[in-house]
Design a protein around this nucleic acid. Structure first.
Lengths: 334, 334
DNA sequence: CGGAGTCCCTAAACCGGTTTAGTCAACCGC
DNA sequence: GCGGTTGACTAAACCGGTTTAGGGACTCCG
């Protein structure tokens, strides 16, 4: 010890007033010499704070890996947390029942000070549930919404709209949509953006199919659309994985992409630019999203207010999976 | 309270002797009625255990999302941890220097009881470092090795060997390898498996290139190989992402897969079966690996011994990106 | 010169469990 | 009937910090 009481050390370490500058320096020097760091456990107990925030992900282990969202989002969260000595507690659970139990347990035994709420569903009970539990939360959603908690949003609608407008500009009229599972808010958001963009171009809403974000689901949805009475000349997918599988399914049927079918994805995943043809897709800054969400949650945990945040809109990345429809060409040449 | 002291409650909750069965039931009933759960913080402090294990991942945020390994591995870990009320503390850091600091900090402030060591490198300083820090660890590697800690291994060599033998059986003689970054143990392991399988088939070691597991790296490596004096008729890639990008790069050059070039991947990622052509690849049970690693680490943390574990070898998944080389066909038909 | 006001720092309570030492009643055998 | 065990439980110390109450020295002011 540097000749002071443990209370003084506590003051010195937390930059609180009431310690002479000289003493503070002496204490810090002693701590450095002894390679001493305050025990996280004791600090958490006495300050009644867990110094940890939680993320509960309700997805089957397999589908987790296929989605580029979570790894990037987590990386973003980490960027912010690490700088403040906080940590992320991660839980992966198989279904919604387990998800509820997870939140209950996290709140009951005080393992975390707050949580992130992702994959928001329609009429999602979680915001109210967490309010009842008194566990601070930040909601990750495609746009601000009525909610007891701050919402950190990246509006995916401009991205989808840009994709549709791009296709319309290329001459497409029959533009279908392969959406995610109905229950998600972002599914509805992307679906609405697609429909809205069609309407804005004075086109009737064309066919859409709900799939499950998986490769198999995307392929199957694509086949369904292509088999319909009026097959689309372009398909806007709600994520890259389904778009890639759909593109392959179309190619397997002998269709040429983009001549016979244009395809757009969503995510701009790592492979998107290295396919045949390279995938036109929508890129969102998921890392930045995670960073912003973490900053918001930390403010909230500290008792500060955190207004809703809306991040810059996503960007359409033009590659070669989109082009003018063959019918247009034929008309042109005829 | 159920008319007993807090010590008695502690005994009752931890199934320790010295509490009458009737009393125990009464205590548990009272706890349930009060919806009371022991405070994680207090328990961690007094029992000198963090009830948490850590995983430090040193990868750039972007590359993290591209790799199906971590999400699946984490999901496996969670399966085991959740069942025992333990939690996973995740840290994503950009480089090896930060990685060291992370381990130091985790050990110093006692946030975790043990850690997982992944992406083991040649002459990796981390096992010794953690031994010096006194922080239990479990090493995730492709095969058992000299190490102060238990090693949980999935031997990837049989998978690579199976891929090579499959290609040899198809008639390939010029089989190249696109490996991962040199520094990783699993890179060397897969490279050795490729070379060993060639030798076992009485073939000379053919060309190999180190890439970085990214799509761009895989494409570039592929072009290098195809531009060489003796281009391969088949390429064994160290992961799916590079294989997919390589396959597209070859196709873009006008090559037909598999007629002009056969391709195998590693991971069996979600898209692998939904490409054109579907990718022949090696599947490992990463979720099971995470589960086994977590079980081992928990034993270690409890002071029990944990022998090295070797999981079932990976499995070659045959799809259509591999086939007889065109030269062979010509020879056959000639 | 005495009292109020500051500034620094210490002593001790406190967070909510675990764990050791010790109390007390019932039971045992001789 | 009495010392010795045993079983069930309580009281209190303890984990390692944070935080409140308070004490001593010094300054300022009338």
């Amino acid at each position: 010890m540097a000749g002071v009481s443990k209370g003084a050390v506590s003051f010195a370490l937390n930059d609180r007033p009431g310690v002479a500058e000289a003493t503070r320096t002496r204490i810090l020097a002693a701590a450095a010499e002894l390679r001493w760091t305050p025990s996280h456990r004791a600090r958490a107990l006495s300050s009644s704070r867990a110094l940890t925030v939680g993320l509960v992900v309700a997805r089957a282990p397999e589908t987790l890996g296929a989605d580029p969202f979570f790894p990037a989002f987590i990386a973003g969260i980490e960027t912010t947390l690490a700088a403040r000595g906080q940590a992320l507690l991660l839980q992966v659970v198989p279904d919604q029942a387990s998800e509820r139990r997870s939140y209950d347990a996290l709140a009951a035994n005080g393992r975390v000070d707050g949580v992130f709420l992702t994959d928001l569903r329609l009429d999602d009970p979680r915001p109210a549930m967490l309010e009842a539990l008194g566990l601070p939360a930040v909601v990750i959603a495609p746009s601000p919404l009525e909610c007891p908690w701050p919402v950190v949003a990246t509006d995916d609608r401009p991205g989808i709209a840009a994709a549709v407008h791009h296709l319309v500009a290329l001459g497409h009229r029959r533009i279908a949509h392969v959406a995610g599972p109905v229950e998600f808010v972002h599914t509805r958001s992307r679906h609405a953006a697609w429909a809205g963009a069609l309407a804005a171009s004075a086109l009737d809403e064309f066919s859409s199919v709900h799939a499950d974000f998986s490769a198999a689901g995307g392929a199957e949805a694509t086949v369904r659309l292509l088999d319909s009475a009026a097959p689309p000349t372009a398909i806007v997918y709600a994520n890259d994985l389904m778009a890639i599988a759909g593109m392959s399914a179309a190619q397997t049927r002998g269709l040429h992409v983009p001549d016979d079918l244009s395809v757009t994805g969503f995510d701009d995943s790592a492979i998107a630019g290295h396919l045949r043809p390279p995938l036109t897709t929508v890129r969102t800054d998921v890392v930045g999203w995670g960073r912003a969400a973490a900053e918001c949650l930390l403010r909230l945990v500290d008792g500060l207010a955190c207004p809703d945040v809306t991040l810059p809109p996503p960007e359409l990345v033009l590659r070669s999976s989109t082009g003018p429809p063959r019918t247009t060409r034929e008309t042109d040449s005829a």
